[in-house]
Amino acid sequence: MRSPLRIGPHSFESRLLLGTGKFPDFDIQRKAVEVSKTEILTFAIRRMNVFEPTQPNFLESLDLNKYTLLPNTAGASTAEEAVRIARLAKASELCDMIKVEVIGDAKTLLPDPLETYRACEILLDEGFIVLPYISDDVILARRLQELGVHAVMPGASPIGTGLGLLNPHHLTFIIEQATVPVIVDAGIGTPSDAAKAMELGADAVLLNTAVSGAKDPIKMAEAMKWAVEAGRLGYEAGRIPMKRYASASSPLEGMST
């Protein structure tokens, strides 16, 4: 029996969270989302183009009974900006989860830990299900879970780089002490990156560009589904210890001479 992913009051079969940015077109995106078997989709909140009200919108084309929305606070660089975006998202009455993303540096897009913490504090008070995007800092992860966040989302590497798990050792520090789900977010480039994160014991993986920017996003979405599942199964199965020297898989006795 596979264990579900539980975030606050929500429960999910899939451990792959998919971003919705930068897909070539809605048709490819819809198919990619479908084959990924994801149940959680992230979105950003932006101004509507009031001069072009008929422009198609991906969210409006979705069966919202099938997906849980995880809006982000991307674009915020202070706690106040993040809180405002979160409130706007919740006012849609379509979601109660929020990915707190407070960027501290335009070049690396690394999160500002202090503003992130402050935003989480306010949003928890207001009853949000709070999932902060953070660096791979175990102390910050612990402080946030003590504060009451519902998951922590350490980055594997900077957003959109596809560099994979730059510091798996630090990710394991976070995973080992976690009392809430650990969702490895950002920087995943390949299915093996996603599988590796899951093998380390991450509860889920959130990725976007690795799929939307792939030569064939639909194929990559399916690859990511298998990778996350394989990595999770491998983690639950428990890997063998590593040894320096060989040990034969075939019996040493009974050789025919």
Partner: peptide, 10 residues
């Protein structure tokens, strides 16, 4: 007045 909506994002 600000009118916002959900757009693609990660």
């Amino acid at each position: 007045i600000e009118i916002v909506h959900f757009v693609g994002g990660g």
